[in-house]
Design a protein around this nucleic acid. Structure first.
Lengths: 239, 239
DNA sequence: GCTCGAAATTTATCATACAAATGCACCGTG
DNA sequence: CACGGTGCATTTGTATGATAAATTTCGAGC
């Protein structure tokens, strides 16, 4: 699942430098130390360091040029939707600001996905959504229910047949997953969220895009309202 | 602007292998030749090859393990929103299927962005949108108008203050730009597209999210209808 | 037949050397 | 003094060869 492999050495270097850049320890315009000394300071060979730098360069975080060195690029060059960049931001963000941006993306994607699914779903894709719904119905404990809920949303996404949307959703969802424990997100909705899901399912079955969109919209609204209610009370975040 | 640097040698290797994978010449599950022979076959050192492989690995296209080799990963692991992956797909896609998916993403992003901009725009962000609109008014030829149009949409995106949305839009837009010549996309709309833009601008000024969303929606609808009309007639694509 | 371990293969990492690019200072010239 | 070209120094880019680590495979021993 995770993008940069933790096993390998250069993976460690990627994360270490990537975090320092994303967090702001290294700021745009800053020039990193020469490869030779940077390699030594991180206790790896120049070869391994360079492989890491190339990856960070591919993510748009840095830019290397002969004679001048490797410079941290301006934030608008960063691949903000890269799974690593996102996770590094999530790993240390005190402000709720960023979470709200992630939530906003989710609010945009899901209704659109429901509509697209209603428009283009195949028979098997529909039955997958239905299967997920059945699992939600049958769920006994919050963990089961959370897993079924996730598979429901995933089935809807798959039914869109648009891999760009699927990829976007999975990236955003996994980033949000770093903040909210799944069960915490869904536990309270247990009771009255099921009808919402049924509405989405039925709209997709009947190929009614606008109905599906609105149903998904109100589902999310309720979910968020419920979440806010809970946050005033007790635990809510991780990390 | 472009992601992988063409100047360097390993950049060439990245593109070469990346394209072959994305296009389907190399299929998921396939094992690439050993690094040593692959390096020779591409006429680069193993060092340069490995740097390229690491980048492709970061994009989710491949996965390397000792003793087993480098394997092409399943498509659902790919970073579909990566600028390179997207551009490689655009570089050789005979079907209109993929373009429609890109257009769908655009249709999703832009109205949502207009709404978000109306909700949160600062004074200076508003004036930037206004400035772009003025440039559209003042445009004399299609090139000027196309540039102003782009800066209008960019200003709206910036006004959302959500860098995730900005990044998503820029990626999708640049991919679409590989298919449609800018002037071709906008030339026909010259006359009657301006009022649409004005509506969006005014809604953002008055902080009316839903009005802004709908205005942007109908703008895109008209734009696409106009485009389809033109495609039946004359030129439309590039590659 | 099963388990455990040795061997073989491939990637991972390292060290070193050289090539290429490029900013910068220096020098010559008008 | 201003200006432009030219060589030098520095840093990344590439190549080569060697060793370490991981992991599959196969065989030996029980």
């Amino acid at each position: 699942m995770k993008a940069t492999d933790s096993r390998n050495l250069h993976g460690h270097v990627i994360r270490e430098l990537g975090k320092r850049i994303v967090v702001g320890d290294l700021r745009p315009g800053d020039i990193l130390p020469r490869e030779e000394v940077l390699a030594e300071s991180m206790d790896v060979s120049r070869t391994a360091l360079r492989e890491a730098l190339k990856v960070l360069s591919a993510k748009g975080l840095i830019e290397s040029r002969p004679r001048v060195g490797t410079r941290v690029r301006a934030t608008h060059f960063w691949n903000q939707l890269d799974a690593d960049v996102l996770s590094w931001r999530c790993a240390s963000m005190p402000t709720d600001d960023f979470i709200e941006k992630l939530v906003e993306m989710r609010e945009i994607i899901e209704p659109a996905a429901a509509a697209a699914a209603a428009r283009r779903r195949t028979a098997t894709q529909l039955s997958n959504v239905e299967l997920a719904y059945r699992k939600m119905e049958a769920a006994r404990d919050p963990e089961e229910w959370a897993a079924a809920d996730l598979s429901f949303h995933d089935a809807v996404l798959q039914a869109t047949g648009n891999e760009l949307m699927i990829s976007l959703f999975s990236v955003v969802e996994s980033a949000l997953g770093m903040f909210f424990v799944l069960s915490a997100k869904t536990a309270g909705n247990f009771s009255y969220s099921l009808p919402h899901h049924l509405k989405v399912l039925e709209a997709i079955r009947r190929k009614q895009p606008e109905v599906a969109r609105k149903a998904m919209q109100s589902m999310i609204e309720d979910s968020l309202a419920n979440l806010h209610k809970k946050r005033k009370g007790g635990s809510k975040k991780a990390s």
